[in-house]
Simulated assay, not measured.
Amino acid sequence: MQYAPPNQPQYYAVHIAYQIITFISMTVIFYIAARIVSKSSVRIIDIAGTMSLSQVPHILFGLVGLIPAVHLDFGNINAANTNEIFSILKDNIGILVIASLLSIVILAWSIVLKYNAYSVSGNTKGVIGGISFAAALIISEILVKVLIFIIIPYLH
């Protein structure tokens, strides 16, 4: 899940770029991992299709973003008073806890779907499948962060 600054002119382009970067990075890393550990033939189209379906729960993040109470305005965060920020957070703690718990459930659900997608598409099972999945997930998340850091400034 990524957040883009809402005051940027290419607001939607940034969100689209996040999704494209995540999809391509995840597909490539999981494909490489499956090719390394699987004894059977692995097709990139299978990895890409099942991994994209595993992202479906993330639509719920967008729906949570439609709830007006989730949008908190801190003003200029660099010039804001710390007491002011904590006051805003304290006043909205209920909705923040609910949104956070919902986010954790959505992320866990997505990870379970990713593992199932990887194990079926890559024909990986057991300990080797679990270890290679965990390694691929960590590597793909790191790669996504690096690519976002490199690419996103060009969209602003």
Rank of each mutant, 00 (worst) to 15 (best):
A117D: 01
D91T: 12
K90V: 04
N116S: 06
I95A: 06
L101M: 14
V112P: 02
V120N: 06
N92F: 13
W109T: 13
G122I: 07
L113W: 13
L107K: 05
N92K: 04
L102E: 08
L107M: 11
A108R: 03
A99L: 07
S103E: 10
I106E: 14
V120I: 07
S119A: 12
I106A: 11
V112H: 13
S103P: 10
A108D: 00
Y118R: 00
A99D: 05
A99F: 05
I104L: 15
N92C: 05
W109E: 03
Y118M: 02
S119Y: 03
L107C: 05
I104F: 15
I106K: 12
S103V: 04
V105H: 10
K114R: 10
V112W: 14
K90Q: 12
A99K: 11
D91W: 03
K114T: 01
S103K: 09
L113F: 13
W109A: 12
Y118E: 04
A108K: 01
G94R: 04
K90S: 15
I95C: 07
D91M: 12
N123H: 11
S100D: 04
V112G: 06
S100A: 15
I106G: 11
A117M: 02
A108S: 10
W109V: 07
I106W: 05
I93C: 05
I104G: 12
G122V: 05
Y115N: 02
A117V: 00
S119L: 04
L113I: 02
N123D: 11
G94K: 04
I106V: 09
A117I: 00
K90A: 15
V97R: 07
V120M: 03
V105R: 08
L107R: 01
S119G: 07
V105S: 06
V120G: 00
S110G: 14
K114L: 02
A117L: 00
L101S: 07
S100W: 05
A108L: 13
L96I: 11
L107Q: 08
A117C: 03
D91K: 14
G94N: 09
S110I: 02
S121C: 03
L96Q: 10
I111K: 10
V112R: 08
I111E: 13
A108I: 11
Y118L: 01
I106P: 09
T124Q: 01
G94L: 11
S103G: 15
I104D: 11
S121M: 00
I98R: 08
W109I: 02
L113Y: 12
V97Y: 08
K114E: 13
S119W: 02
A108N: 05
K114H: 11
N116R: 12
L107W: 07
L113C: 08
W109N: 06
K90F: 15
L96E: 04
K90N: 14
